[in-house]
């Protein structure tokens, strides 16, 4: 890549008010370091304590989702996962948004869609109710957390979550995008 391409990349990031962008392999130490940087950036903004905590919460759920579930692992051990993805945090008007992208197995798409689609139309009260029910049920097979991740993102966002699936060429994977606005 020439420096001109880098300038274009920088200009676009500036136009879109990107607070930060990371692409590559995610591990817990990357998540923690990004979290510290995000927190310092938020401390110098006008965001309320509640918005800061919610933004941080959405950031952690999305970033740990990449660590645990991206279909492109570099290392896959019980306590040292490293998986590919991208995450960015930006500002638009007086709102923040967080977007993350990671590859998933193409056949995993319908199951993910079935989980996410209802969250777009549920009210906040319905989301909180579902969260409470889920809190009291056993974790589902294949889940490394509590199965509460997407519900947590939907609960903390101030608009319905957005998502997309884009097939990766010459690969059995699909890029899964998730966006939350706060």
């Amino acid at each position: 890549m020439g420096l001109t391409a880098f300038h274009r990349f920088q200009d676009l990031a500036r136009e879109e008010n990107v607070v930060f962008y990371y692409t590559g392999y995610f591990s817990q130490s990357v998540v923690t370091a990004m979290g510290d940087a995000l927190r310092q950036r938020l401390n110098s903004s006008d965001a309320t304590n509640v918005t800061r905590r919610k933004l941080f919460s959405v950031f952690v759920e999305m970033a740990q989702n990449v660590v645990h579930y991206s279909a492109d692992p570099l290392i896959d051990a019980a306590d040292a996962e490293l998986r590919r993805g991208a995450l960015w945090v930006g500002e638009k008007g007086d709102r923040f948004y967080v977007v993350c992208a990671n590859p998933i197995a193409r056949e995993a798409q319908p199951k993910l869609l079935a989980k996410l689609e209802p969250l777009r139309t549920m009210t906040l009260d319905e989301i909180k109710q579902r969260y409470k029910e889920k809190l009291r049920t056993e974790g589902e097979a294949g889940s490394k957390g509590a199965g509460l991740g997407f519900l947590t993102v939907a609960r903390d966002a101030c608009e319905p979550i957005e998502f997309d699936f884009v097939d990766e060429p010459d690969s059995a994977t699909t890029l899964f995008y998730l966006k939350a606005t706060l």
Partner: peptide, 13 residues
């Protein structure tokens, strides 16, 4: 606790 993630939630329960 000022913040806990979703997977900590169940263990706190």
């Amino acid at each position: 606790l000022a913040y806990f993630n979703s997977s900590s939630t169940k263990l706190l329960m």
